[in-house]
């Protein structure tokens, strides 16, 4: 009886730990995208600015995924023989959009405006990490192929921290009304 209780307790505790480890450290790992797109190649090797593709980032709340047309604009000429580019071409020819998988998910009740942050000259890397080093987009630092702590947890405390302290870098002080709930919630 006593032993059974012990086993049960151990099982419950470790179950919770395992569950939470997954939730905290592994839930945001880099998903496999339909096309093996590399930010490293685009942003680092070819130093294409972010806003060249994410054209709405300074105009709207959402940054926007580049349209297939945009991809084809370059890849009609460049590296047309690569198998990944062939995939893009096939999407283009099928007249289908590419179903990218979203990595930076915010809950429905969060209002986040890319425009405001871009206009306050917050560099994209501040939240999205150094995408120029990522072959596959991820929210985690990868050490020896194992996804580790998150670059951006997208948790409220993380947002608040920047609104209170981090913002000094960009606007010389905390965000005005930056801790008002309805600044970020809707």
């Amino acid at each position: 009886m006593k032993r059974f209780l012990l086993y049960l307790t151990v099982a419950i505790i470790t179950f919770t730990i395992g569950y939470n480890i997954n939730l905290i450290y592994f839930s945001d790992r880099a998903p496999e995208q339909p096309i093996n797109f590399s930010h490293k190649v685009h942003a680092a090797d070819n130093s294409i600015p972010c806003l060249y593709c994410h054209i709405y980032a300074d105009k709207s709340t959402i940054s926007g995924v580049p349209s297939v047309q945009k991809c084809m604009g370059c890849h009609k000429i460049i590296k047309t023989d690569s198998p990944e580019i062939q995939k893009v071409v096939s999407y283009w020819e099928k007249k289908e959009p590419i179903p990218w998988i979203k990595v930076y998910n915010l809950p429905d009740y969060v209002y986040f405006s890319h425009k405001r942050h871009v206009k306050a000259s917050v560099p994209c890397q501040r939240c999205h990490g150094d995408v120029a080093k990522m072959d596959r987009i991820t929210r985690q630092t990868v050490i020896f192929g194992v996804p580790f702590l998150r670059v951006s947890p997208l948790k409220m405390g993380w947002c608040l921290d920047c609104h209170k302290n981090g913002a000094k870098e960009f606007i010389g002080g905390p965000v005005r009304n930056g801790t008002d709930c309805w600044t970020c919630h809707k």
Binding site: P107, Y109, D180, C181, W182, H185
Partner: peptide, 14 residues
């Protein structure tokens, strides 16, 4: 709570 615009606001997720 009351925000800086004089609004009485409700934060649903809280």
């Amino acid at each position: 709570y009351h925000n800086q615009d004089g609004l009485n606001v409700q934060v649903y997720n809280r």
